[in-house]
Design a protein around this nucleic acid. Structure first.
Length: 266
DNA sequence: AATTTGGTCAACCGCCACCTA
DNA sequence: ATAGGTGGCGGTTGACCAAAT
């Protein structure tokens, strides 16, 4: 009855990611982007399925992930958005720069749900959070308020789909109307800092994906990763690649040493 | 000190929508 | 029109840890 998981079937690894795997994935995406998640692990030399790689990247390794506890403001926003959107975690995440749908889902189930229940018990009957969502889905519309938010993300998705480089939802999740800047300076807790600057959007360097694309195109001519010259996301390959790897490694482990990695780290 | 309980969160699973040939 | 491939999403699980008993 239960279909055997593809990963096990293919002899692929499951479970928690090791720092070594993380570094391989980061380095690969930095160099070549992620044009095809399913092909990525093979090309990168990872014994993982593409889905697992995608999830790891989106939920944990992306450089624009905001780490640390949710602020009271963020929690309030989640509650408010959940009232409007229901369990549409990705839509909620799109309104909270640097936060992932998974993270928001976890926070909701661990404490925000309880908080809202307490509130509703002490005040009015619980709001049926699906109502707006259901109606809007049926009518293929949103309320005026939601319409603005959704259309932005959808428009961005369309733009991405029209462009040669296919982007994942993490990109669209950043397409909110909050501008973020990414501060890669190491802080005391090794976390990334993302500051909200205004209500306008753009987050990543516009060159980000075009650069990924050019690297990706360069790669596409070959079956295996090749050295790509020129600028790639986050770092210059030639000059600071391993500095960058150290950064990530330190971020994960707090250690100050580099790893010896096989394959593409030549 | 040992065991139980509860909270947290990374990761997996299965379904669905979209795209393309 | 449709079948196969792929990405994305939401629900769920399970490992880990700390607090409580």
């Amino acid at each position: 009855m239960v279909r055997a998981p593809c990963c096990e079937k293919m002899g692929l690894k499951k479970g928690p990611w090791t720092p070594e795997e993380d570094l391989i994935l980061i380095n690969y995406i930095q160099q070549f982007g992620h044009g095809n998640w399913r092909a990525l692990p093979k090309l990168a030399g990872l014994l993982r399925c593409g889905k697992s790689c995608r999830l790891r990247w989106i939920n944990y390794l992306r450089p624009d992930i905001k780490r640390g506890n949710f602020t009271r403001e963020e929690e309030d926003s989640i509650i408010q958005l959940h009232e409007m959107l229901g369990n549409r975690w990705s839509a909620i995440a799109a309104r909270l720069p640097g936060r992932t749908d998974n993270e928001i889902k976890n926070v909701w189930h661990t404490h925000l749900k309880k908080r809202t229940l307490k509130k509703t018990h002490s005040t009015i009957p619980e709001i049926k959070t699906d109502s707006i969502d259901d109606i809007s889905r049926k009518n293929n519309t949103e309320t005026d308020f939601i319409n603005v938010e959704e259309s932005e993300g959808m428009e961005f998705n369309r733009q991405q789909q029209n462009s040669p480089q296919q982007c994942s939802s993490d990109d669209s999740s950043l397409t909110t109307d909050d501008t973020t800047t990414i501060n890669n300076n190491s802080s005391s807790d090794n976390s990334m800092k993302i500051e909200l600057l205004s209500d306008d959007f753009p987050e990543m360097d516009e060159n980000f994906w075009s650069e990924v694309l050019s690297a990706d195109e360069s790669r596409s001519a070959c079956d295996s990763p090749v050295e790509v010259s020129g600028q790639v996301p986050f770092c210059q390959l030639e000059s600071v690649q391993f500095d960058s790897m150290d950064f990530w490694y330190n971020l994960f482990t707090g250690a100050g040493e580099s790893l010896e990695l096989p394959g593409i780290f030549g």
